[in-house]
Design a protein around this nucleic acid. Structure first.
Lengths: 207, 207
DNA sequence: TATTGTGAACCTCTTCACAGCT
DNA sequence: AGCTGTGAAGAGGTTCACAATA
């Protein structure tokens, strides 16, 4: 889904006091095709004005609605190392309809520390933490070795959506949503494209 | 591309001294279809053995070759806050064919600090840093406000591939590869699926 | 005139299903 | 017997191109 990308662009445009935008401009900023932008936006409803474009603020509100950004999703983060801390402080986590409920870590040196206004709790209290409904999103930012165990604990308390940053393949029950962001993987994808481009350059040079 | 995912799984299997794996097992771990796994792997070459499966170690080596993981890609990271530090220390960045060349930051409190064996340099020395060829990958882990400026500096010293973690839409010349990982976006994608599932549950309940 | 919204063509990725190999 | 490799069918996503509309 590309909506979050559009959302960010619109949010930047709004900050520049831009009133309207048309699909071609959005497309250029999102690095996609203009027709694709229009298709994407049209399936949220007909919010554009022919001959003029889209109203930035209004479109942003519509995207927020579609993304459920009004819904104030509860989030818990396990693993408050550098990555976990970065996530807590990241703009995207605190705004945009997410509310961090609790932070957990296993390290006694980290437990009790206040990060982003929340005190870090011992991970073994996760199991008896109240108020984690099935709409809570669990974020795993632990070392690889602890990730599966933490995931099991999250599932046990009723979490049904997990975002995993640990470099570890996790297994979850079928009714749990799992999304994996491996930071190293992103680098690999980039180097893969570099490799392809290099190959393409060679071919071009040979002709 | 799913190769990095397979790579991680194979690497885990190898650590468990697993000799062979077949497409169905790989598929289950990668959360994809078995036919897809075979298609993906077959376009690297015919490395499987019918009736047996794939040799874990050999397949891993082939994937590494395809991904250019033997090529030892040089990487520079700008912005050594929590996120930057997490990246430096992340398993995926130091292994798998990447070599971190240099770290940069603007904060005097961070400059000079040693992270992952490398001393953090002042970001304004980036412009006169030697040895950043056009295969160097630049990683932007700065706050949003500094990201475009840092990107321009990276492009100016010859970097042609950039991985952006800042919550900011960047513009680069057409010949520069740009990939954006917005941590908040990932959360939004997850909450979007939650929303859809919730809607689906409602429909199911209504019947 | 400028730009949206969308049917239709197109293309790429996914899945099926099975021949072929070990 | 078991599993790969792959042609063919199918699904899904992308782009074109233009009628509709402000």
């Amino acid at each position: 889904m590309r909506l979050p990308v559009y959302r960010r662009i619109l949010s930047d445009l709004l900050a520049e006091d831009r009133q309207t935008v048309h699909s071609e401009q959005l497309a250029e900023l999102a690095l996609v095709n203009a027709a694709k932008v229009r298709k994407d936006l049209s399936l949220l409803g007909s919010f554009g004005t022919r001959g003029t474009g889209y109203d930035v603020g209004f479109l942003l509100a519509q995207i927020d609605r579609a993304l459920g950004a009004e819904d104030d999703w509860p989030v818990v983060i396990v693993g408050i190392g550098n990555l976990g801390t970065a996530l807590v402080n990241s703009e995207g986590f605190s705004t945009r309809g997410f509310r961090i409920l609790a932070l957990f870590d296993a390290d006694p040196a980290v437990i009790g520390r206040v990060v982003g206004g929340l005190e870090v709790r011992p991970v073994d209290t996760l199991a008896r933490t109240e108020g984690l409904g099935d709409s809570t999103i669990g974020v795993v930012a632990t070392p690889a070795g602890a990730a599966q165990q933490v995931t099991d604990a999250l599932v046990a308390v009723g979490v049904r959506a997990i975002l995993n940053f640990a470099p570890q393949v996790l297994s979850v029950p079928g009714n749990v949503l799992l999304r994996h962001v491996d930071l190293g993987t992103e680098l690999q994808v980039l180097s893969f494209f570099q490799l392809r481009r290099r190959a393409a350059d060679r071919v071009r040079g040979a002709r």
